[in-house]
Design a protein around this nucleic acid. Sequence first.
DNA 1: GTGAAAGCGCTAACAT
DNA 2: ATGTTAGCGCTTTCAC
Lengths: 339, 339
Amino acid sequence: MSRHKKQISIRDVAKHAGVGLGTVSRAINNKGSISPKTKAKVLKSIRELGYTPNLVAQSMRSHKYKNIAFFVDLKNPTFSRIAIGICKRLEHEGYTLSLSHIGKENIVPSMESFLSGRRFDGIILAPHRDDDETLNRYLNSLEMPIVTLEHEIAGFSSGVEIDYYSSIKEAMAYLFSIGHKKIALMVGAPQVRSNKSIINAFMDAYAEHELPLNSELIMKGNIDDTYHQQTFNHVIHMIRHQEITAVLCMHNQILQLLLEAMKADQLWFPDDVSLIAMEDYELTQLLNPSVTVIKRSLTEIGEKVADILITAINQPELDPLPPHVIPTQFIIRDSCRPI
Amino acid sequence: MSRHKKQISIRDVAKHAGVGLGTVSRAINNKGSISPKTKAKVLKSIRELGYTPNLVAQSMRSHKYKNIAFFVDLKNPTFSRIAIGICKRLEHEGYTLSLSHIGKENIVPSMESFLSGRRFDGIILAPHRDDDETLNRYLNSLEMPIVTLEHEIAGFSSGVEIDYYSSIKEAMAYLFSIGHKKIALMVGAPQVRSNKSIINAFMDAYAEHELPLNSELIMKGNIDDTYHQQTFNHVIHMIRHQEITAVLCMHNQILQLLLEAMKADQLWFPDDVSLIAMEDYELTQLLNPSVTVIKRSLTEIGEKVADILITAINQPELDPLPPHVIPTQFIIRDSCRPI
DNA sequence: GTGAAAGCGCTAACAT
DNA sequence: ATGTTAGCGCTTTCAC
């Protein structure tokens, strides 16, 4: 209510219930000692008057803001899905989510100006990389619970860890079973725990099938550092010369670039190469043919991240917390064909 | 800063500069009368102390919150793009955007619980329909500047109006020029101003080319009301029997359903039917072949919506404001073929 | 267990 | 033009 409609205040409730200010506060917050009888009386008055505590005033006095800052690049459709989960969980706990769109550059200044003067209880951050020293120093200077998404930054909880291991093993077994022997992997930064499990599973699968694994087949790294045009040219080249017959593309932005490169070169799946992607969204479902994927629940990720942050806020001694482990699922569709 | 690091307050600044509290406040807010000299002195102290006004305290006293509530269904990728524009503009103006994910049902209770106790200066709402009487009554009861997206609700500014007219005419001229004579239109609710311009342009194009327009070729309405499975079955039927040779699909969710239906029926573009879609995003670009589209700038929409809301907040006498008009652009790609 | 009083950091109203 | 005072609505401390 922005325009000055005179709101009912804690004073009105106190008067109506015939008690002191402090007693009403105690009744609202279940804090301090209060007899069940007076508490019931106060609660009744609150109901009758339709009183809602003013969060701004509460924040000012208590230094608790019920407000989380979310720094994210909304261009990435993954994050808007995760945001849904975060929203749900936070609202349920009475927190507000304040959104700030960040790009790849100048993250610290933009965070600084966003946080300046405002009060938050914690931060959820989806950084583009984990080796931005300026950013890492800045985060440490904030002395606030911070949970990261996607990339892990030393000293802070990464809210979740995606357990890709078994799904990758499944996917590889599937590809081997339909005759593939030369499979390439495209994945993000290998420092990321979840990506480690992808790479391990990939290598283990090769080892278990006693197939030789050329290190060239594993492409890994931060998207901006590793995935240049020439990377994709090289992949296209390998596809053309049948040095690979399948690609496991475990990053949705890399997938987009790969598809663009293939399209530019008139290659298509599954005829020219079999494809398994990560993430199940409109694109993988509506492409023709639809794409076989390894799926994780984005809403669940969002919820767990919010959980971790709330715990870190309420029990700072536990911070940083270990990540929640999120399972994945292998879904076969039409983007792979037998050799 | 959540943990109690003792912040510099306006008191410290006043002491440091050797002036009264009020004077510092005046210097910060450029309000009331203050001599340039003392103002400079205060500003210098502020810089030296690294003081930032506490927004929570400012809000509490001034009843201005610098905070906007955004109610939106984040599942729709359009809105996350628009959110980027809103974010940018609001941050620039010193406002925070608080996110609330809403579904199709129970919007009022979820808005109520979100707003309860919190303070916002205004609301941006992307409702799923315009004829939800409960919602409309509720909005009116809020007495707060509200701007809507996509659907227009009586009494409130719809932030923007998309000018599809000329682009649709262009698209139709293009289709006619490559021999199409039976073109279907799929569009959202005809109450929406932007959709009216689509329908008008479509009908005008037919009239100008002196071609008969069967009313069956125009499918319009709210996605939940009009676009049932049988609607798509009917479209598929018309395509199969060459009762139509092209579809103008002006709604991205309808497009998804259409593509699913076509895929299920083994129809594909442009071989079986030519296709022109709305919105330029990953899907339309990465589909093979890529889709000819009518494009609007989503970031611009977001920015304009934020603009309108801020104006409505600062100059309530102007509310509701007329919508900004956003131009569109026709981009030819590979989803149409000559007849 | 409960009421009264102090004060969070600021702006607005009132003095001068 | 500027210093002082009174709260905004609440939680917290301190009496009792």
